[in-house]
Design a protein around this nucleic acid. Structure first.
Lengths: 150, 150
DNA sequence: GTTAATGCAAAACATTTGCATGATA
DNA sequence: TATCATGCAAATGTTTTGCATTAAC
């Protein structure tokens, strides 16, 4: 179970599993595909732990990211978004489709980057450890809407 | 020449080529691969036009981006970086290699994404208009340095 | 009982905006 | 001259930090 892994990971690094920390993790697990902003994590977490402060959210997000438990993304709207990691295979081949019309974030899986990463290492000597691939465009439902409007 | 194209593009949209605007463009052209932050553009521009204000930098960067003359990137360090566009073919296949050790930003060209973009359209109905692909890792010179340290 | 974690408020930071002034076509 | 662009300062929004208090191990 995802949460056991997170608990173990925290324990392994001798970080305490406080109620606040647990609530943040629960929210991130419940929104595994939600790409939540810090503010949104805050909102959701308050439902589980009413007295929590925003600074605690940020501190825990930073901690979880440094442990590799969550991933931080930026979509160019001036705030970071957070997502729990699902394991390397899942993770590495999982890219985002960002709709410029409605802002929705879809997903797409592909392992084609493997090839590029090998070529990068061979041709430039750069050792790739991670990547971020985002596609921008118009999602299927906005395209449908556009057709209806015409 | 790149600058003539920019001038023409501004004129076409009836924007004035003020000395400040020209200085910003000159800086971006002189640093075509520099991935400058707004602050860095400001610093460089002040050498050409000492009395310029930061707000003018931001306003012009926004304008140039909206005209498709420059590109805005985010590398996850909390600030945007700007780069002049070099033309579509050049542009579309040009990805970034970001070193986690020294922060340097290298480049790599590949058209392999074409294949993925076709599959996305076929399999999800999402229409891709643009993408952003960044590789994180350790650059060749930091790897060499690591070897020397051991 | 130590030490780490929290909440609050203040600070820091990048970016945006209001507005009066100045420059451009 | 009418409009657009600028500079400055103030406002904004997100994220970070200081510090006294509290809670976990």
């Amino acid at each position: 179970m995802l949460k056991d892994w997170v608990s173990a990971e925290l324990e392994k690094n001798s970080y305490r599993l406080t109620p606040q920390r647990e609530a943040v993790v629960d929210v991130l697990i419940a929104n595994a595909d939600g790409h939540l902003s810090a503010e949104e994590v805050f909102m959701h977490t308050k439902k589980l732990h009413a007295e929590i402060g925003l600074a605690t959210i940020y501190r825990n997000l930073e901690l979880l990211e440094s442990l590799g438990i969550i991933h931080r993304f930026e979509y160019g709207d001036g705030q970071s978004r957070y997502e729990i990691r699902l394991g390397d295979e899942e993770e590495h081949y999982h890219h985002h489709l960002i709709c410029r019309k409605c802002g929705s974030i879809g997903e797409f899986k592909s392992d084609l980057l493997e090839t590029i990463e090998k070529r990068i290492a061979e041709e430039t000597g750069f050792e790739v450890t991670d990547h971020c691939l985002r596609f921008f465009g118009v999602c299927a439902s906005c395209l449908k809407q556009q057709d209806l409007d015409n």
